[in-house]
Design a protein around this nucleic acid. Sequence first.
RNA 1: GUGAGCGUAGCCCAAUUGGUUAGAGCACCGGGUUGUGGUCCCGGGGGUUGCGGGUUCGAGUCCCGUCGCUCACCCCA
Length: 452
Amino acid sequence: MKFQNVKGTRDFYPPEMAVRNWLVGKWREVSQRHGFEEYDGPALEYLDLYVAKSGEGIVSELYHFEDRGGRALALRPEMTPTLARMVAARANALPKPIKWFCVPNFFRAERPQRGRLREFLQWNIDIIGAPEDRTDLADAECISVALDLFEQLGLTTEHVEMRISSRTVFAEILSTLKIESDRHPLIFNVLDKRGKIPPEVFDAELAKTGLNETQRNTLNEMMSVRGDEAFSQVEAILGPSAKSDSSCAQLKSVLNALKEQDDRKALDYCVFDPSVVRGLDYYTGIVFEAYSTGDVRRAICGGGRYDNLLAEMGGGHLSGVGFGMGDVVLGEVLEECGLIPGLTESVECYVATEIAEKIPDVWTIVNILRRQMKQSCIFSYKAGSLKKQFQQAAQHRAEFCIIVGPSLAVKHMATGRQIDLDLPSNLHTGSAQKMLREELSKTFATLKQSDT
RNA sequence: GUGAGCGUAGCCCAAUUGGUUAGAGCACCGGGUUGUGGUCCCGGGGGUUGCGGGUUCGAGUCCCGUCGCUCACCCCA
């Protein structure tokens, strides 16, 4: 084999493409039900767009090159900069809140490993410009979209959980612990690693940021519990400042909104988990990650509130919340849970003949079916044994097989029932074609009825 | 970029531990039976054992290199 696909990319043969289309279809369906509009941007952007958001360090992580005009371009590694750019360009003209989604492919120049490729699809959901005093509802709606998707895919609370935390709660805790806010980003960065490194290493890393033992222990204890217990811990740490307008209350109101849904099922997926921090500096409010409860360890999706990002990228002061969900990890989880359906492409008709001289008639009938009757239709280019052609018809999940011989026969593949029709001697007259159409329609209907 | 494991047919795997001409199954193509279908039977194409070198009378098997894949680290938008 001389050529192969580029490392970290995938070939989608028809069976894989069917699964991909199925998944993307679910993403679209759920997005639209929640009132999100689809958009897209270019796969190529100026390299500077990403440097502006993430710093020079990002350059080694993405595919970039110089075009013939000397411009530094990059293949998009994420959507947020493009989204910010697009929103900024029409910030005043777009009705708020802006609720957009997209399902683009992204490229990252990383070493592929489990759940991570160099090209992948990612569903992006964003709500921008929600009223500042009701961002809790935007947060809840955003999370609700993800949970609805899980339900649509058959992923239950047995399979996945949504871990929710809040950067503002953390900020308040750090302030209570007398840690200046300019050190918060550095500390968040360490806190984010907590689940991935041994406890001693974690403690040492925290110590490096200048936290004393009491501060470290307080954070560690709080991050080791979840749910109501975590709320108690947080409230204990915050003490008298944990009032109704506190960050903690805001987080609770997001969870409450999810609870208010009619079936209350959404909340069952969710848990307050202070160990969720997220690695990005721009998050300003709630942060959340969905995880499989099974063997797949990576996050299925992640997101949060980013109220300053748009302004930083020149988009004016607009609140924002959103998440991304990649197809790779999700696909692995679905596979593991046996939730990927059998998706064989099917056609409505197969036209067969044993007689070589009838091939022109086959071709004519195929065209009548396709062009006049709008039926999907395939046939064999060569006359041959009916056995073989039936096998092909069955392989393609044809609903009907039309056999052209001295006369016509229509066979219903599911039941094996067969009805004979006359074959007009000249298929090229309008009246013959009209008659054939009517006969075929009637026969299809009859055979379908007998099925039920 | 760092480390580890693995490379035999399109796919999943064999090959008596170094011994003749590298084999099955699935898939694909062709033929036959059931006289018009997913069964069964027969046949066929397809491999320089990733590639290159070395040790040996002899290498798919051992050694070195290289490429590729996978997993982990880094990073995670």
